[in-house]
Design a protein around this nucleic acid. Structure first.
Length: 808
DNA sequence: GTACCGGGAGTTTTT
DNA sequence: CTCCCGGTAC
């Protein structure tokens, strides 16, 4: 094999880059750290850097490993590199940590006693497994709950501590830790018996594989000569260790004979080059083990590393950046960084204080319509929140206001019981050793196989040292009734039949995944049985199952050679952000965490309140407040042109209303940057009063210490006389608009107004907004929208079908 | 083995 | 408030 001489980097790959960006593309050393502020064009730098390595013949595409945070980011990067290079992206690995590890583990599965079709358990699956163990050990009576056990185990795996390692360091006088250890042991044993990995295993087991088999590690060290990691600030210890293993280089005796790369003089593989991109200010995953030190100590870990700072922002206006800089500046012990832009000041940040979460949501809906009327597309707008629970009020109001929206994340499609059921069927087929999946489906749909029968099969399997599935095949030996016995045998038969119709490993001559799936669902009558009930929710469930079949069809189309195992891998590793579809024509709703890496023309950050953002759970965690601040910073820097910050004065939780205080983070934003549409200080009761900025005296000093602003406390659902006694807020805390009460109420049940006929000029009455005149009616049938000019509160768009509206 | 009822606990963020 | 679990009745 000859080595093509490196040529110069083509001009079009560095043109238009600013000096540090260009330096980052051109750098040719072993280790490069790119500190990339929000919106500083890091994806551009990464893609150009990859393209430059290939264009100069310094690397083949197959020698590149690029790690991104989500599958969507990976797809995007692949596409952009492709555009720069033409077709030459074949063989490049651009994927998430988890996908890359799955690929390696499946390839090497036989070498460590697993099967290539091993199952990936999501958190719910591992929770179910841990639950069984916790119950059997009666651990809850000792104060070890399922979730503490799960969190501890996950934390240990992220630190690469296996049960034996934990046993060595555990405090033997602490009965709880002893219990955790026992749970961890049993859990790991069961995973192994089921030939399954949980999420954390995917990374940790790969590291252990590399450490246990240097010659396997050498295969990958040889292959990947250039490793690039995005969002490096959110890597945990296991991921860090993986990168270390891959960039280590290897000893001559482990190097495969047919090596085509340039070896060192002693026959060893030289370390691969490593590029990491990150921003410690955007580290928001400490709770799941991300270690900010990975980035802060990069130069120590990789001596001789070059560091390049990208500070010019190409995304947001200066006002937005000023706010972001001011907020993040309150975090101490960070490397100072100052984002700037050439884009100009832009509009001020819009602030709004609602009386309730619904009031706040109404503000969001109104602003969305306003911007849409001015020409901003719905897809260019996004609404963020700290907790998923906040979506309820937002959704209710957005529906009523006829705002098209999409929820990103939340209760995900693949977490729904019926979808998990069907996926469990597929897992049972791909991996017959997976007892958890088989037990999930053994009585779903109902076929008369209850818990006692299940236990009988399990015991029989244990006694005869066979798998659960094999025990099912020998159901006649269990001495059960004929009906149950036949049900078991029939299910086993269905699974075997499906197994034979496909080849889980290779797709040659086999049926496409979707055909097998459709036949399977038909054969067990899953949809049919759902349709037979009177429960309308079951219809929705049936539709979800049909949707899953469609997903499989789409998969078959995109991957003609895709196998069942490939399909299951894809299903197991979808992330919330992967659901995004830029063409949807809808406003996106998501948590602040999900928002990382995305950008929108207009952004709303809702619930900017104490105990919500920063969240109260973070208060007693070390570094918790700083992480919350970073989360807020991430949210702010998503906005290109317009940023809205909103909060509510009361919020409902567990069906109980409580008073909310404005977030301390709001105070950190210079007063001049925010234009309060309705400030917290005065809830704008009387028209004409000049809104007082948040930082003005009498308010800002009012909380934090003293003034009775200590935090939330329960209040009666409508008693505004029962407000906290500080800072003159009480007297000003009065509803403004007509006689509306600003309870959390959303009057009555969903109304069905489908038959209401409205025309321009009609007078109507709305339960919240009072009386008004219809200005226009658009849309058809259930989507009919009335635009109403209300006497008190101005113009609103309403979805007629659901609006609490009456014709006068 | 299933269906229904009542009590109790829980919502921070996620690959 | 809502989901989930465990207990009881058929």
């Amino acid at each position: 094999m000859t080595f093509l001489p490196p040529t110069a980097i083509p001009a079009d790959l560095v043109e238009g880059l600013n000096p540090p960006q260009r330096a980052a593309v051109e750098y040719r050393g072993d280790a490069l750290l790119i500190i990339a502020g929000a919106g500083s064009g890091k994806t551009r730098v990464l893609t150009h850097r990859i393209a430059s390595l290939i264009a100069t013949h310094e690397a083949w595409p197959s020698q590149i490993l690029a790690i991104t945070f989500t599958n969507k980011a990976a797809a995007e990067m692949r596409e952009r590199v492709g555009q720069l290079l033409g077709e030459a992206v074949e063989g490049m690995w651009i994927s998430t940590f988890h996908s890359a590890c799955v690929r390696i583990l499946r390839r090497e599965a036989e070498k460590f006693g697993y099967t290539q079709g091993f199952t990936i358990y999501d958190s719910a699956d591992s929770k179910a497994l841990i639950k069984r163990i916790v119950k059997a050990l009666e651990a809850e009576s000792m104060g070890v709950t399922v979730s503490t056990a799960q969190n501890r185990i996950s934390g240990l795996k992220n630190e690469l501590i296996d049960p034996d390692g934990f046993a060595r360091q555990v405090d033997s006088t602490n009965p709880r830790d002893q219990l955790i250890l026992e749970i961890y042991r049993q859990y790991q044993r069961q995973l192994e018996r089921n030939k399954a990995f949980d999420f954390d295993d995917l990374i940790a087991q790969t590291v252990w594989l590399f450490r246990a088999y240097p010659e396997i590690a050498a295969l990958y060290q040889r292959r990947f000569r250039h490793i690039l990691v995005d969002e490096y600030q959110d890597t945990n210890h296991a991921q860090y260790a993986l990168i270390r293993e891959l960039t280590r280089g290897s000893e001559p005796q482990h190097v495969p004979a047919d090596t085509r790369i340039r070896l060192a003089a002693d026959g060893s593989i030289p370390p691969a080059s490593l590029t990491v991109v990150g921003d410690s200010d955007q580290s928001i995953y400490a709770f799941r083990g991300a270690d900010i030190r990975n980035i802060t100590e990069f130069e120590k870990d990789f001596p001789g590393a070059e560091t390049i700072l990208l500070e010019q922002n190409y995304r947001s206006t200066q006002h937005i950046l000023d706010a972001a800089n001011a907020v993040i500046g309150n975090n101490f012990d960070r490397r100072p960084k100052n984002l700037w832009t050439a884009a100009g000041e832009g509009a001020k940040i819009v602030g709004y204080t609602g009386y309730s979460a619904h009031d706040e949501a109404q503000f969001v809906a109104d602003e969305i319509h306003k911007l849409h009327d001015q020409g901003t597309n719905f897809n260019d707008m996004a609404v963020f929140y700290r907790t998923n629970a906040q979506t309820r009020a937002l959704e209710e109001i957005l529906i009523r206001s006829a705002v098209p929206y999409r929820l990103i994340g939340g209760t995900k499609f693949y977490e729904r019981a019926e979808v998990k059921d069907i996926v469990a069927y597929l897992m049972s087929i791909a991996n017959p050793a997976d007892e958890l999946s088989v037990r999930r489906i053994i009585n779903s749909p109902k076929r008369g196989i209850g818990p006692s029968t299940e236990t009988a099969i399990s015991l029989f399997a244990q006694d005869n040292d066979i798998t659960f599935r094999e025990a099912m095949g020998r159901a006649r030996e269990l001495g059960l009734g004929p009906k149950v016995t036949n049900a078991i045998l029939d299910l086993e038969h269905v699974l075997v039949e499906a197994e034979q119709s496909i080849d889980p490993a290779r797709n040659t001559g086999a049926v496409p995944v979707s055909d097998m799936l459709a036949k399977l669902v038909e054969r067990v009558g899953y949809i049919e049985k759902l349709r037979a009930t009177n429960n309308p929710q079951d219809d929705a469930r049936a539709e979800n199952v049909e949707e899953l079949i469609n997903v499989a069809k789409e998969f078959d189309k995109q991957h003609p050679d895709g196998t069942l195992v490939d399909f299951l891998t894809e299903v197991a590793l979808v992330a919330a952000a992967d659901e995004l579809d830029d063409e949807s024509g809808a406003v996106s709703l998501m948590t602040l965490h999900t928002a990382k890496g995305l950008e929108y023309d207009a952004v709303w950050i809702t619930g900017v309140e104490e105990e919500l953002l920063p969240h109260k759970m973070s208060a007693d965690e070390p570094g918790g407040l700083a992480e919350e601040r970073r989360l807020f910073y991430v949210g702010i820097t998503r906005a290109r042109k317009i940023l809205h910050l909103s909060l509510a004065l009361t919020r409902t939780q567990y069906g109980e209303s409580s008073v909310a205080m404005p977030s301390r983070f709001l105070q950190e934003i210079p007063e001049a940057l925010i234009a309060w549409r309705q400030s917290p200080g005065i809830a704008t009761s009387r028209g004409g009063e000049r809104p007082r900025a948040l930082n003005a005296t009498g308010y800002g000093s009012g909380y934090g210490n003293g003034g009775g602003f200590g935090g939330r406390r329960a209040v009666g659902s409508r008693s505004y006389g029962d407000m906290p006694q500080g800072a003159g807020l009480k007297s000003e805390f009065k509803p403004t608009r007509g006689n509306r009460t600003f309870d959390n109420q959303i009057t009555g049940a969903m109304k069905d107004n489908a038959d209401l006929v409205l025309e321009t000029g009609d007078r109507v009455k709305h339960t919240d907004f009072g009386e008004g005149t219809v200005r226009a009616v658009t849309g058809m049938k259930a989507k009919r929208i009335a635009e109403v000019e209300f006497d008190e509160v101005g113009r609103k768009k309403l979805l007629i079908k659901v609006a609490p509206l009456e014709k006068l």
